[in-house]
Write a protein that binds this DNA or RNA. Sequence first.
DNA 1: CACAACCGGTTTCATTTGTAACCGTTGTCT
DNA 2: AGACAACGGTTACAAATGAAACCGGTTGTG
Lengths: 148, 148
Amino acid sequence: MGANDFQLPHFLPYLLNQAAEAASYEFQAYYRARYGMLRTEWRVLFHLGLYGDMSATQICELASLHKTKVSRAVAALEKKRYMARAETEADRRIERLSLTPMGQKVFRDLSAAAERFETDLMGDLSREEVTHLRRALLKLSGLDQRRA
Amino acid sequence: MGANDFQLPHFLPYLLNQAAEAASYEFQAYYRARYGMLRTEWRVLFHLGLYGDMSATQICELASLHKTKVSRAVAALEKKRYMARAETEADRRIERLSLTPMGQKVFRDLSAAAERFETDLMGDLSREEVTHLRRALLKLSGLDQRRA
DNA sequence: CACAACCGGTTTCATTTGTAACCGTTGTCT
DNA sequence: AGACAACGGTTACAAATGAAACCGGTTGTG
């Protein structure tokens, strides 16, 4: 024990952070340059594209994002005409968010780009390594618990 | 292919990010509450603690941090009296950074805390899983290339 | 030796983020 | 019904971040 055998490149939180940053670098550059989008914005866009219309709060829960972040991302996406809001008749506080046709197009392009970057990324890893990696990350993130 | 089989919880950059955030959450709360430190600050502190005195630029390279971030972290650590600067006689631009005794104490405490949190974190994973995970993350982060 | 390019590090300014207070709506309790 | 807590979402303000300009100090070149 003690600090002697502790090394930064073995410390999981550090390692995860470095890997996460490296992994999202190219994709980030892509959606930023091409659509002027921020990280939270593509996340919101993807949630709507993948899971269908939903409210801001639902996105918060699914993506573990704070509501102010989502609120701002929603405003930005709306301004870019990628997304629209509709009032809910049953509860007038809730806004049903949905992608516009243009937003859907962006979503499809970004999905394809995401797959390309991911494939690229996995180039260094064997198929088995990727499977194990995903499983471990799911556990660590708690995403396996929160999801159906 | 196409967007149909694409799912957010399988997308590596997303997954890595979620895992990284979840993993560093508790440790972050610890050094923040206890020492009022920011993420970049503990990274700088750890680099000095683990690898001995060095310059800001060297930390930038080792930790893949931008120099403004390091500059601010160094200023903050100095203000807290965890770290001191010394001029280099050979090149008066370079500052040799080193931990004060107080900084070393903080470093030791944080090292121990880091190990505890990491052990905790790995509770969900088998020893083998952790080994594989580390190897994969090292590759993805590029940390294995840049380091001796 | 003068001059320009470069380097280590800081500062400035615009953008992004976090925290908390806030607004209108709905649910609850009596 | 009326008072009040809780909720969905926004706004305001402070703190953190990123990009680029900047400041001395150093190196290289004529």
